[in-house]
């Protein structure tokens, strides 16, 4: 007959998630997607949040400054679809860029192509940051 769980093991391994933790596991990734780094900031990971925010914002803005292209939703070429998925990762930055009409010019020189990649990678890095914010919210990471 198996031993009943001790109070210690119950607390450490089978503790039911509190309502705050459950809510945070939804809110933190959502906020982190909308504003890069904010998923960490609302969980009081100040330094990590600021570094993520600075890195992803800088990368996205440098991409725009280099005349990089911002992809629109499309159903054509597979690389265009993947480019759109990468761009969408930047969340609020992507929305602002689309509303303002940034990144719609034709790519005319090599630097603009680097800019396009910067914008895509900023979005992909934000996907990783969102997953990290979720892991913090569920207690998997300190």
């Amino acid at each position: 007959m198996p031993n009943p769980p001790t109070s210690k093991s119950f607390n450490e391994t089978q503790r039911p998630a509190t309502e705050t933790e459950t809510m945070m596991s939804v809110v933190a990734p959502a906020v982190g997607w909308l504003v890069p780094g904010a998923g960490h900031l609302i969980q009081k990971r100040w330094i990590r949040g600021v570094l993520l925010l600075a890195s992803i914002f800088s990368m996205f803005l440098l991409g725009l400054a280099m005349q990089g292209r911002v992809y629109k939703p499309n159903g054509g070429d597979i690389l265009d679809i993947l480019g759109f998925i990468g761009d969408v990762g930047a969340g609020g930055l992507y929305m602002v860029a689309r509303i303002a009409g940034w990144g719609e010019g034709a790519i005319a020189h090599a630097t603009a192509d680097y800019g396009t990649k910067f914008i895509i990678v900023a979005g992909l890095l934000n996907f990783i940051a969102v997953a990290d914010a979720y892991h913090i919210a569920i207690g998997k990471k300190p």
């Binding site: 570094l51 993520l52 600075a54 890195s55 992803i56 800088s58 990368m59 440098l62 400054a65 280099m66 005349q67 020189h109 090599a110 630097t111 680097y114 800019g115 990649k117 910067f118 990678v121 900023a122 890095l125 990783i128 940051a129």
Partner: peptide, 20 residues
């Protein structure tokens, strides 16, 4: 309109990606 060399763009990319 920012014009970077390939090497400086790669170094900036490396800095930001490494932080994340």
């Amino acid at each position: 309109n920012l014009h970077l060399s390939h090497f400086s763009a790669a170094l900036l990319f490396a800095v930001f990606a490494s932080v994340v």
